[in-house]
Design a protein around this nucleic acid. Structure first.
Length: 741
DNA sequence: ATTTGTGTGCGG
DNA sequence: CGCACACAAATG
């Protein structure tokens, strides 16, 4: 691995000085007295290395990978040493390092190389990526970990490969594990089967309440919960003496994977890298990874950069979850980070999920990864029977066809509740999250801020979901009517209705809203579980049935990804239900779009992904092509586009005005600090900052996928040229923007 | 951002 | 000519 420690040439045509011959530096006894560093400055044209002199006192501390402080443009800035050398290409005398912050080389050459690749791919700055990769230092934790750490005690335990039963359910599965165990680096896109933890005792005792279960369903070998399958792949990789990194969307997923690893590899330490754990625990887990104390690392998106020693396998699960995309510049996606990493470090990769994302489909079609999925016959047995009755079928059943929960759905729930738990997936949380005028159906809005009104609980007056004001004397601005009706029904109200219909069955609500938290698990007793997508509790032994309400709500969104996202959510819920062989049933309701609905009924996420990708190729949409969005004030966007060097086949769409920022998500007024401490600031005329932020525009750049790297390079150059000229008005450059259309 | 270097204009 | 101020370039 070659770290990219070479000083990059000055950006653009601004400064094309003849390369100065490296000059030896007299270090007064210090060997390699030059520290090449990356400095934390937010200016794109300064996104390269700088050389400093290492004072004798820091000679053995300021080693490559360590944090230091340097004087830069008159201020102390934090920086990382990326290289130590004995010469410099800088012409004038070097300034000394100010302070060695810590002796721990937190930025390893491998991770630095990855950060550079990610920055390049996303047209961003190296330091922005490094900030994502290296968690903030926690001094007391660092001291504690270093004191306890005994380098000699690191025993690379030899692990035997997993038994040959593992992954047998999947075509190509055993081969995948075999290659991992042999130290090779296969890549797979894995469509996971629903698997359920067996109910203790149920498989053995035949005195179950279920009368007709004379035939005990035989769960085929290898149909296991997804975290267990991942643990088996990790096991195989450990057998080759290499480390494993697993990245998942949420803390909840992390816990599931950590538990599965503990069950299969009880003696193997696991590092849990989750930002939610807080600075101390997060930094401790990071250091344990860095020191090689844990070869198994599990975490959320930032963990994609974890310094796993000798990485053998990178895993990402449920890669369609938007929480795997980093919200800070340069907005890298964990799937992409891991893919770059697998290539650069020669590691294997596993992209898994119940659905198959369009991006994963592209990896398959490019032959970058092999598909790993179950044969049709097995799939039919272990997935639930799914129905998506159309209006015609429902009308045959009786007059209540248009009801949110039509008669056939009630019947499924009633039958299932005699045996075990039933899941009801509802698109929205809360009680009645959106109301409209009862007469003209115009959405009801707040008189003060024009936010949408909702009902927070039974019998409550409507209130604004943006500002919280109670709209006690609301009247429709269109027709004057004072009555409201529900346009969306949330999980709380749904639970209320279901509770009335099944008074003898307990009802559980799970969701990320304030009223109630996310419920992790439920047992196998009869119970109604109402949950929003992603918050479905795992039921021991699997749900007997699931009702997926609000089908249209999830597919009618205008975004490009709406139907793929709907299918992902439906499959996520349906995968918690027992297989058809064990009586599991799913009903999809609420007029969903037919294409994703049929993909669910046939349980064919790969077919859906192939069709979706073909369609996007036809329309020149990503990921079939590479897109980048450039957003900012009109002048700033225009200037950035003006600085772009020509690129074959580059299409520039727009710029067009972007819709007004949403007052819910937009911070109030970004009060600019007047810097009271500095007398200079008072003397300088403050540029007038508009009270109302200037409206922004966005341009979309489109190129062939093979030109993607060239586009990113040009965007980074243009941003550097702009910042070098101190052109103000920030522009946000986003490669692979997730939220277009 | 902040510092440093260079150019310009005006008073002496 | 000398100095203050403005602007541009560089930041090690």
């Amino acid at each position: 691995m070659t770290p990219t420690s070479r000083s990059r040439p000055q950006q653009g045509a601004l400064l094309d000085l003849p390369a100065t011959a490296p000059q030896a530096v007299d270090g007064e006894g210090v060997s390699e007295p030059v520290a090449r560093v990356v400095v934390d400055v937010p200016l794109p044209h300064l996104d390269h290395t700088f050389d400093y002199l290492v004072p004798p006192a820091m000679a053995s501390v300021a080693l490559p990978g360590t944090r230091v402080q340097v004087r830069f443009a008159g201020r102390d800035r934090s920086a990382y040493v990326v290289e130590r050398r004995s010469d410099t290409d800088h012409r004038t005398t070097l300034a000394p390092l100010r302070r060695a912050v810590s002796p721990v080389p937190v930025l390893s050459p491998t991770v630095l190389d990855l950060c550079r690749a990610v920055a390049d791919r996303y047209a961003g700055m190296l330091m922005d990526v490094v900030r994502l990769a290296v968690p903030p230092r926690h001094a007391t934790t660092e001291k504690a970990v270093l004191e306890k750490h005994a380098p000699g005690a690191l025993v690379s335990r030899v692990v035997d490969p997993p038994d040959s039963q593992a992954w047998q359910a999947y075509t190509g599965g055993p081969a995948f594990l075999r290659h991992l165990a042999a130290g090779e680096s296969p890549r797979a896109v894995w469509t996971a089967l629903p698997g359920h933890e067996p109910v203790p005792g149920a498989a053995l005792s035949n005195g179950s309440a279920s009368v007709e279960s004379t035939v005990e369903p035989t769960v085929p070998a290898g149909v296991l919960p997804w975290p267990t399958s991942i643990a088996q792949a990790a096991h195989a990789t450990l057998a080759s003496g290499r480390g494993v990194l697993v990245v998942v969307p949420t803390t909840r997923h992390v816990t599931q994977v950590v538990d599965a690893l503990a069950a299969i590899l009880p003696n193997e330490p696991v590092a849990r890298l989750v930002a939610d754990d807080g600075p101390a625990r997060r930094y401790r887990a990071f250091l344990r990874t860095l020191l090689g104390e844990a070869r198994l690392v599990v975490g959320t998106r930032a963990a994609a950069f974890a310094p796993v020693t000798d990485l053998g396998l990178a895993v990402i699960f449920d890669d369609g979850d938007d929480r795997l995309a980093e919200p800070r510049a340069p907005y890298p996606h964990a799937r992409q980070v891991l893919a770059l990493r697998a290539e650069r470090e020669g590691a294997a990769m596993l992209v898994g999920g119940f659905t198959r994302t369009v991006e994963a489909q592209l990896l398959v079609e490019q032959r970058w990864a092999h598909p790993v999925q179950a044969p049709r016959e097995l799939l039919r047995r272990v997935t639930p029977r799914v129905e998506a009755p159309g209006e015609v079928e429902l009308a045959r059943e009786g007059p209540a066809a248009a009801a949110r929960i039509p008669h056939p759905a009630w019947r499924i729930a009633k039958e299932a509740l005699t045996t075990g738990p039933v899941l009801v997936q509802v698109a929205r949380g809360g009680y009645v999250p959106v109301v409209a005028c009862a007469r003209c159906r115009e959405p009801a809005r707040c008189r003060t801020c024009h936010g949408p009104l909702r009902l927070e609980r039974a019998g409550a007056a409507p209130s604004c979901s943006w500002c919280g004001r109670i709209a006690a004397d609301w009247a429709c601005s269109t027709c004057g009517d004072t009555r409201v009706r529900a346009t969306r029904v949330g999980s709380t109200r749904t639970a209320e209705e279901l509770g009335r219909a099944f008074p003898s069955v307990p009802v559980v609500v799970s969701g990320a809203t304030a009223d109630h938290g996310v419920v992790e698990t439920v047992d196998d007793r009869p119970r109604l579980v109402v949950a929003t997508p992603g918050a479905e509790p795992v039921a021991r032994g699997g749900y007997v049935a699931a009702l997926l309400l609000d089908g249209a709500t999830s597919t009618s969104r205008p975004e490009l990804w709406a139907s793929a996202e709907a299918l992902r959510r439906w499959l996520g819920a349906a995968a918690l239900v027992r297989g058809a062989e064990a009586g599991g049933r799913v009903m999809l309701l609420g007029q969903p779009a037919p294409v994703p609905a049929q993909a669910l009924v046939r349980w064919d996420p790969a077919g859906f992904a192939a069709r979706e990708l073909a369609e996007r190729a036809e329309l020149s949409f990503p990921p079939a092509v590479r897109l980048a969005a450039v957003q900012g004030t009109p002048a700033a966007v225009r200037s950035l586009l003006g600085h772009l060097e020509p690129l074959d086949g580059l299409e520039v769409l727009g710029p067009v005005a972007v819709e007004a920022p949403d007052p819910r998500t937009e911070a109030p007024a970004p009060t600019r600090r007047p810097r009271t401490g500095s007398p200079r600031a008072a003397a300088r005329p403050v540029p007038p900052r508009p009270l109302v932020p200037e409206p922004e525009v966005r341009a979309v750049l489109r190129v062939d996928r093979r030109q993607g790297a060239a586009l990113s390079r040009r965007l980074a150059h243009a941003a550097a040229a702009r910042s070098a000229r101190k052109e103000d008005g920030g522009v946000r450059v986003q490669v692979d923007p997730p939220d277009l259309w």
